[in-house]
Design a protein around this nucleic acid. Structure first.
Lengths: 341, 341
DNA sequence: TTGTAGGCGTTATCAG
DNA sequence: CTGATAACGCCTACAA
């Protein structure tokens, strides 16, 4: 940005009025005569006036910007959340500053610092897998930052939370597998310290229990979240002594890996091995067979997050109780888990 | 963000020195005694001092922020570009403000306005399909904004540009199809006003010509960029009078649609219908058969963009000639186009 | 090596 | 209805 940026003082000078009048006119203050307001608006438009957001933020102590920290933007879930947030936020003139933690604790701390320096009005975060503690978040809170968490949250922190009912999503999925006649259902899980994986596993266990099925520890595999791991895990399951007849994965990526591994081994899906994933990544419905998955209501999550932020922001309800909003998942049954017809 | 933000004045008062000394100490100015510098650094750390970026930007006329306007963040290509940009930019302490135009001209204008108000130091943009003219960009330029374009660029504007050699990518792909024995090659294209689609089509035409093949206008379909359109287009081609034996698509999504349509119709790929796409979306290598595609060197593009920006920024080479950097594509030959063995 | 003073562009307060 | 003035937090001549 070069120099010649026009300011309210320039406009004031040209119009022979004071800069405070210009400022008021620009903000639509009704105490300024219509004539003046129009004159200012016209000249501002003509000269291409762009208000200096920094000056205004500095003066008002509000940036009208919200920071977002997520592991990765190229996950279907997160890019949808972003869409939802922006849809609501932009209507109120807020901007969104997106930061990727890349699943790293250090980057997450870095992002947090950046956003604090920027003096954003609020920070939305979904934690990195690398973050096994929340010291950095507590730090923020003690500074009075308006922090809100979603999806991967710390369930202890006194902050607003928007989460999916992961337990329910998992429970329904496993129940569905059981209904389809699967009896030895394996589970791919993620790090124990992350609520979503913990809850999905709980749902899995509960569904097995309610179905009168035994839990086989060898069928529960930790940290199987990407395609490669899913592929390997499936191969080893198929070669092991406890061969499952279905897999419920906490991740669509590892579910896909499993599907590919099964195909490779000539194990048919859904006939010999039922498969279900989680997150409703776009590719799940395109494969042959299409993969059963759980939709996370991502756009809605983004909207809810932003709306709650705006509500609290306008109400000045500073010390109000933190909310926890739980959204419902939606099981999408596709061919990969349909054995009966 | 509540209030109690500590400032350099607070630190100055506590230490019994002046705020300018604190400012200098914080910026590592060697003219401040080591003792003072350490004292300041310690207290700042202890009290959790966070510099107010807006105040400093306002004062210096630099925000250390770059704006990015892209059609969609959830495209493999764009999220990789973002990764590349951030990798380079963050090292130099710059932030990236990401805006999605959603392929809409109006949103693009809106984004531009936002970024100008924010006084970002530079704007990187890849144009929306909805933008059929560049008036808004000229506007920016006349204001002295450092604008840089990539991928979908306006080839007339006097700005730095990083592009892929789309012509070459298309040419190689079609040549490859010809080598595989395909003779009636159809093409899915995008809007004519977008350079990348224009150039890909040129590459397609040139390759046909150089191979002594005729151009059949009925085999060139416009605006076939998403899965649905690709599906429909393929069906109509297969049902038409000029049935192609291969399709070169400007988009992986429509290539996928074509593959699914062919499968549906019992037309085998690559046997009866060779298929190649463009962009190397992750799903292309996962399908059965894996889809031949062209890698766009996206991370490199992001890095190059950011590096060029930084270079020019540091050299203060304000009026220097605009660069156009052309990156090489990489043809990834997969089963969908391999007929010979 | 450190302090003083002024200003970046806005807005809020207080006067008129 | 409008103007003067101060302040937001920081940086940087210029002085000492």
């Amino acid at each position: 940005m070069k120099k010649n940026n026009i300011t309210i003082h320039d406009i004031a000078r040209m119009l022979g009025i004071s800069s405070s009048t210009v400022s008021r006119a620009l903000s639509g203050n009704p105490r300024i005569s219509l004539k003046t307001r129009e004159a200012v608006a016209n000249l501002a438009h003509e000269k291409g006036y762009h208000p200096n957001v920094m000056a205004s933020s500095l003066r008002r102590g509000k940036t009208k910007t919200v920071g977002l920290i997520i592991p990765r933007i190229n996950r279907h879930f997160f890019s949808n959340v972003i869409g939802g947030i922006e849809e609501v936020l932009n209507l109120s003139g807020y901007n969104l500053m997106i930061c990727q933690s890349d699943e790293s604790h250090e980057k997450e701390i870095e992002n947090l610092k950046t956003l604090m320096n920027l003096r954003v009005d609020g920070i939305f975060i979904s934690m990195a897998t690398g973050s096994t503690n929340s010291e950095h978040l507590k730090n923020c809170l003690s500074r009075g930052v308006r922090l809100m968490m979603f999806d991967r949250v710390d369930e202890e922190l006194p902050v607003d939370r928007i989460v999916l009912d992961d337990f329910e999503g998992a429970y329904q999925t496993v129940k569905h597998l059981v209904e389809q006649g699967y009896r030895k259902i394996a589970h791919f899980s993620g790090p124990e310290h992350i609520n979503v994986y913990r809850n999905r596993k709980r749902g899995y266990l509960e569904a097995l229990k309610d179905s009168g099925l035994e839990v086989t520890s060898g069928l529960i595999l930790q940290d199987v979240l990407d395609r490669e791991k899913g592929y390997e895990a499936c191969l080893s399951l198929l070669a092991g002594k406890d061969v499952p007849d279905a897999i419920f994965s906490s991740s669509d990526f590892s579910a896909l890996g499993a599907l590919l591994a099964a195909k490779k081994k000539g194990v048919s899906t859904p006939g010999d091995l039922g498969i279900a994933g989680f997150a409703n990544e776009p590719f799940t419905e395109l494969f042959d067979p299409p993969i059963t998955s759980v939709d996370q209501n991502s756009i809605e999550m983004g909207k809810t997050l932003a709306q709650l932020f705006l509500d609290k922001e306008s109400e000045e309800r500073v010390g109000s109780e933190p909310y926890t909003i739980v959204l419902k998942p939606r099981l999408l049954i596709r061919k990969s888990s349909l054995r009966k017809t």
